[in-house]
């Protein structure tokens, strides 16, 4: 059997003003074919105004088993949030 066609991740921007969002993946021989396939597979009903395709092999992902070490500290550092600081009401909205 022939070689497997490479895998690409597809990101679509639904409309201007929003960021590109991952929507799935597909197989294509090169970037140009990947863009064409992404248009056919993921935007048949006006889902997008812009497409990015990225070779799946180019993505480095964080390890889910290190989720706690990676992301927990953001919850414990409450001084990073504005509500941590008491400001007298007389000062008004800040």
């Amino acid at each position: 059997m022939s070689k497997e066609t490479p895998l690409w991740e597809v990101f679509i921007r639904p409309r201007n003003g929003l960021s590109h969002k991952h929507c799935g993946s597909l197989h294509a021989a090169d970037a140009e074919l990947a863009l064409q396939a992404a248009r056919d597979v993921y935007t048949r009903r006006g889902e997008g105004t812009s497409i990015w395709v990225v070779p799946s092999s180019a993505i480095t992902a964080s390890d889910p088993s290190q989720k706690d070490e990676n992301f927990e500290p953001t919850a414990s550092k409450i001084y990073r949030h504005p509500t941590f600081y008491d400001i007298p009401e007389d000062v008004g909205h800040m």
Partner: peptide
């Protein structure tokens, strides 16, 4: 098959 092979070879 030949289309897939040709596309890969071209890439």
């Amino acid at each position: 098959a030949w289309v897939r092979d040709a596309a890969l070879a071209h890439a």
